[in-house]
Design a protein around this nucleic acid. Structure first.
Lengths: 230, 230
DNA sequence: CAGTGGTCTAGACCACGCT
DNA sequence: GCGTGGTCTAGACCACTGA
């Protein structure tokens, strides 16, 4: 399949279509490396910038990812878009016109309990960062967030400012992930003493407990979190 | 604010930040037209291609849109998919000031496939209602909802008006449940033909697929649903 | 018509991963 | 060192809009 320069469809869209078809047809499998950009440019008789524009689109749609110095690879699952916006406490509150903020309660590094290690797909002895934050909306405490994040996935995370903005945005920006899959359990339950004190609630009032795992485009679990919301 | 070429942050990201800040600060209001690309390039001392890359990012994030031959305009604040913290489509849309409605595509009674029976905790041969609805926001189709609800939990459900309001509200009211636990999986994927036609989307555009189970206060699964949203 | 964004080129240098 | 993607330039022509 070649690019037809008489076709009014732009070359980068034609190339995108060609590569996408190869992925959907299984001729390119998840994990496969594509030819380097310069070679694609030569093969299809277009400039490298045009190849980049095609690849940008495919990256955007979650079909591929790229690593500087390594190459271009077909992504694991199907497709992704901006999942952050649907899962981020920070953006959620901003969208509602509230002012979100956080206070770091605890940040450390440890070997996680077996059940959490299993959810994260970690081998025995692999460490995680444990990050516990109290969340505010307009300075009212509204939630407690406990996250376990594999150290090998996000090295140096504790050196970041964990009280500013969205943790997911930080992770995606710093480590160049895209979050493509989310699993969430929601449950209402009476509040226990510890959470109740943090959220300034009466003992036994109902809280929303949310447990979740998020996955990046390579199918790796990036975060296991337990959250309690008023 | 200018672009600092000694700053290791790429010029296009610096420009993106500058423009985004102007929008967030209200110096650029929704509907305002930005300077033409060539003028931005001259003002910030970078090439037009670099300006385009910054604008592409902002377009991508929904802050601006562009029209060939007309210019670059600040977008209305984005409506984000915030299904995570809400259970009910109806309530979600009402909260956003949109008018929700539904059209019943399919309503019947059947023995569910084994995997769905398992999710619902049903014994062999126990029937479910299968309810498929197209969802509208202000008469635009925005989602397709497929629900499996155990007949023994909600007897006579098909006799109700399934196009009016929230199915969850109906179920909770008629059968005196409280929904206390929800499990949700979110994933984005390219739209297939059937859903694409219902939602009036181009084949392969990304849709949010949500799969979920809700439980009542007795721990019984009340509903297994598969939904696709624009 | 002039002005705008859309596409595209043929280069360049840099940052990074690997061997 | 070499190959990769990341960024950037200074042009060019086209398609579309609106006066």
């Amino acid at each position: 399949m070649m690019i037809n320069r008489n076709n009014p469809i732009p070359a980068y869209i034609q190339l995108k279509r060609i590569i996408k078809d190869q992925i959907l047809a299984g001729r390119l499998m998840p994990g496969d490396r594509l030819e380097p950009e310069w070679k694609l440019a030569a093969r299809y008789g277009i400039s490298r910038n045009t190849v980049k524009k095609a690849l940008d689109g495919l990256k955007q749609e979650g079909y591929i990812h790229q690593f500087q110095g390594k190459g271009t690879f077909v992504s694991q699952p199907r497709i992704s878009h901006r999942f952050v916006t649907t899962i981020s406490f920070t953006e959620e509150l901003l969208a509602r016109g509230l002012r979100p903020s956080s206070r770091l309660l605890e940040g450390g590094e440890l070997i996680p309990p077996a059940d959490i290690a299993k959810e994260l797909g970690l081998r025995k002895g692999e460490k995680v960062y444990k990050i516990r934050r109290l969340r505010f909306a307009n300075d009212d405490p509204v939630g407690v967030n406990l996250s376990y994040i594999p150290c090998k996935i996000c090295p140096g995370l504790l050196g970041e400012d964990l009280e500013k903005g969205s943790l997911y945005a930080l992770i995606q920006e710093k480590y160049h992930f895209r979050i493509v899959k989310v699993r969430r359990d929601y449950e209402t339950m009476p509040v226990d003493r510890e959470i109740g004190e943090l959220l300034e609630m009466e003992l036994g009032s109902p809280v929303l407990k949310m447990t979740g795992v998020v996955f990046n485009e390579m199918g790796k679990a990036v975060d296991y979190s337990i959250e309690h919301y008023k």
